[in-house]
Computed example of a mutant assay.
Amino acid sequence: MPYQKNKNFYRLLQKVDACLKTGMPFSIYRKPLENKVKGVFQSGDKLKTAINFEEKGFVFAPFDDNGAIVLIKADELAEVDFLPETKNIYTEVELKDSGKDFHIELIKKGLNEIKEGSLKKVVLSRKISRPVSSSPSLIFKNLLERYQNAFCYLFFHPQIGVWCGATPETLVQIKDRQLRTMALAATLPIKESSSPGWGSKEFEEQAMVTRYIKETLGSSLESIDIGELESVKAGKLWHLKSTISGILSEKTSIKQVIDSLHPTPAVCGIPSKEAKSFIKNNEGYERTFYTGFLGELDLEKKRNIDLFVNLRCMKICDGMASIFVGGGITSASEPESEWTETQNKSKTMLSII
């Protein structure tokens, strides 16, 4: 019997299931550390796009910043409570080595580019395909249960497909000209009763991201503040994070801010243009919406946005889940360790399906 305190949540899932059957676009999501699940529903199946970020709705953007940014128009909004029903138990998953040789060679190529000086950092990823039997709405519920400090979402458009995820990374939040973003980088598995043992490689990777964002946003802000470096948990992983905040200049548009930040060095590399070119020419698959961004656009107030980087995510199609994982490569990277990092990151989604 469904948990009675979540009865409105289950009604929302019924609406979602109906939209999936009839092909009506929607997104449902919960922000980090909140207990409200929100829904944005579009009344027709036409593919709409965000042009200048003056629109209202839920945006879903690809990694390629030349690609169309999908907009779920806010024809109907929903908000319900969700309270966890089960203990936060992680399911052990079987990790396979398929694709390891290709990914190791990819990392070596990236290290060679860094050695030659054309790149300082490049983020390299891979795709994992596994059968999935659970419904999208059940997967979304499981994400809410397990990843309470992440942005959890389920997105659907008939021309895009079904995507879901639990991302730990904010792209940008703007509210009443107050801007907040984060520099998130480096990964270590959580070991019980021990603190993360960060090394120079992880600290330098995080510092690169912080410097890049500070330099990129500098002209858009009247003031900027870099918070203290901290270790944060995302599922069964540690990351290094600095919060970056400031006051948005009156002359700066939302589009200018997003164009400046996306794609961040945490998902692409430094320099951005060269890293993106290397990724497209060498990863061996199209990221599409993995490492893009998603979130609210002007739902509460004009020029208020709340966007997240699309990490720890999957696409569901024809009984298969495509899961995406990657890691930042710097001069201090070791290919075998980087492979292990992607294995650890894959557990977030693999444990759900």
Rank of each mutant, 00 (worst) to 15 (best):
118 S>A: 11
206 Q>V: 06
3 Y>E: 13
238 W>T: 02
304 N>I: 01
346 S>V: 10
18 A>Y: 11
92 E>V: 08
306 D>V: 02
302 K>F: 07
269 G>M: 00
119 L>N: 08
83 L>H: 14
349 M>R: 08
109 K>C: 05
32 P>T: 08
332 A>N: 11
323 I>R: 09
130 R>P: 01
141 K>L: 09
137 S>H: 06
82 F>N: 03
139 I>F: 05
190 I>G: 00
8 N>Q: 15
38 K>T: 06
276 K>I: 00
115 K>W: 03
331 S>L: 06
82 F>L: 09
239 H>I: 12
291 T>L: 01
345 K>S: 09
121 K>Y: 05
228 E>D: 14
11 R>Q: 15
26 F>H: 10
77 L>T: 12
242 S>G: 00
219 S>N: 12
279 I>M: 05
281 N>F: 03
36 K>Y: 08
317 C>P: 00
132 V>T: 13
120 K>T: 12
330 T>P: 06
282 N>K: 10
316 I>N: 05
200 S>V: 13
224 I>V: 13
20 L>P: 08
234 A>T: 04
140 F>T: 08
224 I>N: 04
255 K>M: 07
76 E>A: 14
243 T>G: 01
7 K>M: 11
261 L>D: 05
132 V>A: 15
119 L>F: 05
240 L>I: 10
296 E>H: 04
21 K>T: 13
334 E>S: 07
122 V>K: 01
50 A>R: 10
221 L>M: 12
113 E>P: 00
17 D>T: 12
308 F>I: 01
319 G>S: 05
200 S>L: 14
157 H>Q: 04
146 R>V: 07
60 F>C: 04
224 I>H: 03
258 I>T: 11
120 K>D: 13
214 K>D: 05
168 P>V: 09
320 M>N: 13
257 V>M: 06
330 T>F: 07
227 G>V: 08
288 T>I: 14
222 E>I: 07
248 L>C: 09
330 T>C: 04
27 S>W: 02
25 P>C: 07
307 L>N: 02
17 D>S: 15
279 I>W: 03
230 E>N: 07
154 L>I: 11
152 C>Y: 03
198 W>E: 09
351 S>Q: 15
2 P>H: 13
322 S>W: 03
298 D>I: 02
52 N>R: 13
298 D>E: 11
241 K>R: 15
145 E>M: 09
181 T>S: 10
185 A>I: 09
321 A>E: 07
150 A>L: 04
342 T>C: 04
94 E>W: 02
320 M>G: 00
11 R>Y: 06
147 Y>T: 08
258 I>A: 10
5 K>A: 14
310 N>H: 04
189 P>L: 01
227 G>N: 08
313 C>I: 07
198 W>N: 12
216 T>K: 15
109 K>V: 07
251 K>P: 00
289 F>M: 12
81 D>I: 13
298 D>M: 07
176 D>Q: 14
62 P>Q: 14
328 G>M: 11
276 K>V: 00
159 Q>R: 13
64 D>I: 08
305 I>V: 15
335 P>G: 04
233 K>L: 02
228 E>Y: 09
24 M>G: 04
262 H>L: 06
72 I>S: 07
320 M>Y: 09
275 A>C: 00
183 A>F: 11
135 S>L: 14
